[in-house]
Each structure stands twice: as C-alpha cells, then as structure tokens.
Write a protein that binds this DNA or RNA. Structure first.
Lengths: 220, 220
DNA sequence: GGGCGATTAAAACGAACGTATGAATCCTCC
DNA sequence: GGAGGATTCATACGTTCGTTTTAATCGCCC
C-alpha cells in the first residue's frame, strides 16, 4: 500500500459503511477489516471514531456547499429576481456531483449526508450548524426574493420540505426500489434532480399563493 | 408500580429514547434506568432488544395505517376522482394523531417512525415491507386516479417526495427550530399538516403537467 | 548503509453491551 | 394464610466495543 494511501482508504471505506449501517452500528473493526488495514491505523491517522466521521464529512461537505453557493450566485446574476427553479437546483444538484463526478467511490456520501440528520451526533450537529446555518440563511434570502409574497417563516418551512425531499431520496433510494419492485431505481442522474426541482418549486409557489383555507376536512 | 404497568412503561420510555438517540445508540441499560425498572425486566417482558423495538412499532403502526386507509376510503367515496389534497392529507395527518391525541407520551413515535427509515434494521425493514407495501400500493392507486395524466412510475416518485417531506419534518423538527433560531417550531398542529399537504399536492400537480424540458442549465 | 521519524502490526485493556441465571418478592386465589 | 405462578431483583457471563500500548517494519536522507 502506497504512502498516504491508508488514510484515504480508511476514509473511503468508513464513508461507505457509515452510510450503509450508520455511525453507532458500524464498528472500527468492521471498517479496518473491510479496508484491510490494521485496527490501530484508525486511531493513528484519526484520533478517535468521532474524529473519523468528522474527517469523512470535512472532506466532502466543503466542496458541496461551495458549489451550492457558486450556483446560487450564478442564478442570481442571471435574473432578478432569480428564477425559483434555479435556486432549488442550486441546492439539490451539487450533492449528486461532488468529487470526480461519476466515481463510484463517491456515491456513498450523499447517503451519509442524509443520515447525519437522523443520527444526531453532537460533534457533527455542531459542525453542521456552523456550516449549514449561513448556507440556509443565504438560500432563504434568495428564495424570499423569488417568492416575494411568502412570509419569511413560510420560506423556512419550504426549505425544510426541500431538504426533506432531498435527504429522503438520498437515504432510501434503494428501499424505494424494493417497494416498487424495481420500477423506480435511484440513480444520481439528471432526471431525478429535475423531478425534485420541479416538484419542490411547485410546492413553494403553492405556499406563496396562500390560497383560501382548505375546508375543515376529516379529523385534525 | 401497578401490575402490567412495567411493560407499558418500558415501551413508552423505549419509544422515546429510540426516537431520540436511535436504536443502536440506545442501550437497554439506558432504557431501564430511565424507566426506573430492573434491567432484567426487558428480557422478561420482551425477549430481546430487537423484539422490544418490534413491540414499540407494533403498538402504534397498526392504528396509524388503519386510520390512513379509513381516511383514504372516506375521500374516495366523497369524490370521484378523489381530491388530491384529501389523499395526501389521509397519508400525513394520521401520524400526528395516534393514540389518545394530545398525550405527550405519544409524541415520540412519529420521530421514531421517521428514524426507522435511516437505521435499517433487518427485522423492522421486513415488517415495514409487509405493512407499507400494500399501503403504498393502495395510495398509489388513489393518486393515479387523482392524477390521471401522471405515469405510474412518476406517481411513485411523488410518493417518495411526500414521504420525504413527512419524515424529515417528523425527525428534525427541533433541529429546524435551532436553525431558524426559534422562528419555526415543530408542533403537531393542524397548520403544519396543512402546509405539508398544500406543498405536496402542488408538487404532484406540477409533476403531472410534464411541462417542456427545463432548459439545460448549469452542470448536471 | 545506518540512523530515524513515520507508519504498521499484534496484543491487550477496561468499559459497556445484550443476555442468562437463580433467588427474592409480590399477587392472586383456594 | 399459605401454596404457586408471575414478576422483580441482583449478579454474572461472554462478547464486542473504542482505545492504548509496545514492538516491528518501512522509507528516506545525510
């Protein structure tokens, strides 16, 4: 194994296993065994398990969010107010397009990214807050411009729905494949991104219209 | 402690802790300690940890899905084709309205329900498949009727988005509260359900319209 | 080519886990 | 009121976990 290779290899395998099984359910032994490296290597290159998953995130999250911001700026300078679909696209697309694109090595991270929302590791939540906070506020600002009639609070709700759609698709694409008996398979291809963008943008526009109260229907 | 109380008490506490920390990260000792019962009580009343979470699910999932189906039938007999918003409502609302409604004891389950999508425990996935499979097909059927121009495969995608919105809101409502600095708080109240319903239905209608291809924009 | 920091390897540590065991206690019913 | 099943309790077992330690090995530079 070449020099410096072990560290990257551990990161790759850890990313995949964490994404598949979750943080708590994935042991360092499972990782080092799958990576065919010594158990001690993890505590040598990374200090602890918690630090390892921190490194897994640090490697990818930055580039993704940078691309998000770049796309957002692009669609803001392209039109004023910016096009709604373009904003949503700027948020969703970069997740499917990190690192050297088609490399299967990178396919695991989106799932892991989605998973961190459920497994709430304090150390990661903290980092997520630092990184996601400003990012979300930035998108909130753009969305508010594209949806001038939507109250600020409602914009946050729309963003929550957007994140939900994205994360769920990232996380349980294969589950869906099973449910639909293979009819819908989750591949990080353009059609899926477009589907999400179209769906989300339409939902946001409907929220803006503030149509008359839905008639009190069945319970709740 | 009254007779038969221990078992229910364990279920309640386990439900809450599993929802908060996840299955793998929650030890039986943490549960029994929080419930102030003996460690052995878990293995006495429930055989194993895996069986415990199975019992937690079994207690709630049935009633929720029954209510979903009842609402679905209601809105199908109310209009033909059924109203789109009513179908979506039938799927979403029951989750917020299980057991004796406002009881805070029951507030934890929705989060847990959402979490099982990320922590994929084989035993639960199996059960989920059995229960969710027919349910999803049933909703697929209704949605197809309400969205006659939407191909069957696209209906599944829309349902995936719907589940994503629901689950994400269930799971990270408190996280959102933090992000938005308390501006949006997640409470199982009617306004939130309506927000989700409106958003989702609009997204589905947009999917149906199959508008002209979005012009090739930025990468991916 | 020998010295030396960087890395890998093997083994062991204490802690925490899920589970099993057997005695103690409670509750019910005759 | 005491027999007997149901339940609770304290304790221990074997495993696995994350981490540590100590020795062996590699790679490079003077």
């Amino acid at each position: 194994m070449d020099k410096g290779d072990t560290k990257q290899h551990i990161l790759d395998v850890a990313e995949r296993l964490f994404a598949e099984k979750g943080y708590a359910a994935t042991s360092l032994r499972a990782i080092t065994q799958a990576a065919e490296v010594n158990l001690g290597a993890v505590n040598y290159h990374f200090v602890s398990k918690e630090n390892l998953i921190g490194a897994v995130f640090g490697r990818r999250l930055g580039p993704i969010n940078e691309r998000r911001l770049r796309l957002l700026e692009a669609c803001e300078s392209a039109a004023q107010p910016p096009e709604l679909e373009a904003i949503v696209h700027a948020f969703i697309a970069p997740v499917f397009l990190h690192g050297d694109s088609a490399s299967p090595v990178h396919a695991a991270f989106p799932k892991l990214l989605a998973r961190v929302y459920s497994e709430k590791l304090d150390s990661l939540i903290e980092r997520q807050m630092e990184v996601y906070g400003p990012l979300l506020r930035r998108f909130h600002q753009s969305l508010s411009r594209a949806l001038p009639d939507l109250p600020a609070e409602e914009v946050y709700w729309c963003m929550e729905f957007m994140v939900g759609i994205l994360n769920h698709c990232l996380m349980s694409g294969d589950l869906m494949q099973t449910f639909t008996q293979g009819r819908c398979l989750m591949a990080p291809s353009r059609p899926i991104v477009d589907r999400m963008v179209r769906f989300t943008a339409a939902g946001m526009r409907a929220a803006e219209q503030r149509q008359p109260e839905i008639p009190t229907r069945l319970p709740l």
